[in-house]
Amino acid sequence: MGLLSLQLKSQEIIPEVERLETQIAHHETMIDSLQMRIEHLKSEVLLNDLHRSGLPSEEYISHSAMVVSFDASSRQAAWVAHIISPDIAKGGFGRTNDFRDDPLVEGDAVEADYFLKELQPDSSYVYDGFGYDRGHLAPSADFSWNRTALSESYFYSNMSPQHPDFNRESWAELEATLRAYVLRNEVPLYVVTLPIIDADAERIERGVHQLPIPQRYAKVVWDDVHGRGVAFIMDNRPLDGHNSDHAMSIDRAEEITGYDFFSALASDEQESQMNISDWFPESTWDGVEPLYAPSLPPGHINTTQAKRWMGSQDKVRVCGTVVSTRFSSSGNYWLNVDKKFPNTVFNVYVRKKDFNNFDGIHKEYLLNEKVCFNGKVTSMYGLPNMNIVRQEQVSLMD
């Protein structure tokens, strides 16, 4: 009798569980619909702000949160404008990688400008690249708060051919620097990004439109809350040194590009000024500049270049200045080269079990010395590191 009673109760409970699950699904759908509505309204505000900012030219197309001035002659954007919103702090949307034609410039910027692909019998593709990345002008991570705007950032109208090392290193670091500024100051940033294409620019000969390859790229930035701006013009090639080396006033960028940026927001005096510490906090300078790469002996690299060797099975000599040292809680010895923690660019460590292989490990071993370390560069939390196990891997520079 007791078992029958339990069975009857279960039969009553299961429908109730199913009813509640249906209600939850319904509410989740409603919440998602409301969230999309909020995203749409916020993007409308940003788009209106962009239109009122004094854009570089009058001919452009507008997407959800991005404005593109497309140049038919170069088959890529003349410039792209967007606003980095503080909402990136709570943005939960990641890369979509849904590269596709822009319906507003259909046929002018396409996949075949960057690579070819051939369908195989097993339904897979073989890709034949032309050696350049599809570099975002307005980066997708700047739209992590808005699923529609993020997806639209993969329109080919927002792409430009970038050297792979430049796109993945210096350019990506600059994009991250601007997002960090927004998060640190809790203000929006107006950004205009553009390729600079010289008349004699080389072309991607195998591409369908034979795109000209920009020699340089520019990012021009304005903080309307604090009334200050900065611009960056960077060569489309692997770069050494710090991105701050490429910073300049908006006024100077206007002279180089021929455009007038943020004409409705910034005064001539404001555009002529630029304080580097506003954009690169003092903490990021806690160390020394990397050694000048061309001055190093053949087969030697500086700490900025070390990132390119992460995961390689080849040994390399990485040279720099040891600016701080410490013993970890497990007793291993760590050396920060060129930049101190937490702004490290290259780290070297010796495990406690290997101390006897060195000429006396102590708390200031190699501190303030210019040193070359010989070994394999590995990745730890996305940063280049090297584990050395014997004294022969260390050489002091003259």
Rank of each mutant, 00 (worst) to 15 (best):
S263K: 11
G135V: 04
V322F: 10
G92Q: 04
S379C: 03
N385I: 12
F93L: 09
S64R: 14
I14P: 00
L8K: 13
L8N: 08
T303A: 09
G227Y: 07
L116D: 14
H26E: 13
Q273T: 11
S272Q: 08
F70Y: 14
G129I: 08
N387P: 00
Y60L: 07
E152R: 04
D398N: 15
F99R: 04
G135M: 03
A138M: 03
F358A: 06
N302S: 08
E39T: 07
V192F: 02
S57Y: 07
A25C: 02
Q120I: 03
N243G: 09
A77Q: 05
L265Y: 05
D142Y: 05
K370A: 11
W79L: 07
R134D: 02
R37N: 13
H362G: 01
S140F: 12
H40E: 14
S73A: 15
Q215T: 11
L137E: 01
D200Y: 02
D278Q: 14
V377G: 01
L194S: 11
C372V: 06
A25R: 14
T193R: 06
M234D: 00
K9H: 09
D224E: 14
N368T: 12
G382N: 03
S160E: 01
I213E: 03
M30R: 11
E44C: 12
I204R: 01
P121K: 08
R184L: 10
E202K: 13
G135R: 01
P297M: 11
S395M: 12
S277F: 13
L383F: 12
D286N: 15
I256L: 06
E12Q: 12
S249T: 13
D354Q: 10
Q210D: 01
W171F: 05
A264P: 02
R390W: 11
D260C: 10
E106D: 05
E369M: 09
D198S: 13
I83Y: 05
H209W: 06
E16Q: 14
K363S: 14
Q305T: 13
L174Q: 04
L104Y: 10
S267I: 02
V192A: 07
R390S: 15
D398Q: 14
M397G: 05
E255R: 09
E255P: 02
A247N: 03
I38K: 08
R228G: 00
P238W: 00
L4I: 10
Y154T: 04
M36P: 00
E255V: 14
I213K: 01
M386V: 13
V288C: 06
R19M: 02
T325F: 06
M397A: 13
D71T: 09
S153N: 06
E271I: 06
A78R: 15
V377Y: 00
E173A: 14
V68D: 06
P103D: 00
Y156H: 09
E255A: 12
D235R: 07
L366V: 06
T177G: 04
P212V: 03
Y132S: 10
S249D: 03
T193I: 04
E12K: 13
D198A: 10
N357Q: 15
I88F: 07
I361S: 05
A253H: 00
N236A: 05
I276C: 08
V323T: 12
D314F: 13
D32E: 15
L41D: 11
E289W: 06
N356F: 09
P384G: 07
